[in-house]
Write a protein that binds this DNA or RNA. Sequence first.
DNA 1: ACTTATCGCACTGCCCCAAT
DNA 2: ATTGGGGCAGTGCGATAAGT
Length: 222
Amino acid sequence: MGGCVTRSEDKIVRVGGDPDPALGIDPPTSVAGQEWREAVPNDRLAHLVKDALRGLSRGLQMRLTEHDVSFGHWTFLRILWEHDGLTQRELSDHAGLMESTTFSALVAMEKLGYVIRRHLPENRKKVHVFLTPEGHALKDTLVPLAEEVNAIAVRGVDPADIAATRRTLVAMVQNLIADEADGLKEQRRMPSTRQVSRIIDRSERRRNGTKAAGAPRVSKAP
DNA sequence: ACTTATCGCACTGCCCCAAT
DNA sequence: ATTGGGGCAGTGCGATAAGT
């Protein structure tokens, strides 16, 4: 999930996503949704799931931003509303994110006053995360927003179709988890962004017949 | 020795905005 | 209207510190 929350007060102008080279057309816009749908009757499920995810994420992000909550924070708030007092490691597992991501999100959330991080006497190594009253109170505000986005997404869809879609998506998730597990057995694993970058860089050099650049990439960060 | 938390860095995806 | 650069949020890896 790579979306980000714009901090500006301006409305988000761009509704569609990046043009998909495989399709040669733009994903849906709020205006041209019907035309888009007719143009891709046999689009691959992966593309449709991606576009659905993008739409759901953006819909929720826009609403969360109005309450000073980022999408990343929403992920952890949801878990903490159900399991307050988890350790950072446990939160990472529940969220399916790396510990460094969890750490930076929790530091930001602590600054915002949504959580506090505490060592407990039993184990001073572990950091437990607790919701503040403000963090608890956000549940009543934010959950209806998520429900609203879900309701908008399935507007006009037959309940039986929604149930079938749910079953299909659950099956897809299970199948893909199994596939990834099989891949691990065969030493196939998800490359890091750095590895991907290195591989592409090598491939580019091979194609251009140039020798190794060796120059370190310059971070765009200040 | 092992586990867990933290930090720095590199990267992607996205958005904004000025220049064309 | 389009394009390219800059900036930001989110993410993951690797290294290191600190606790058990």
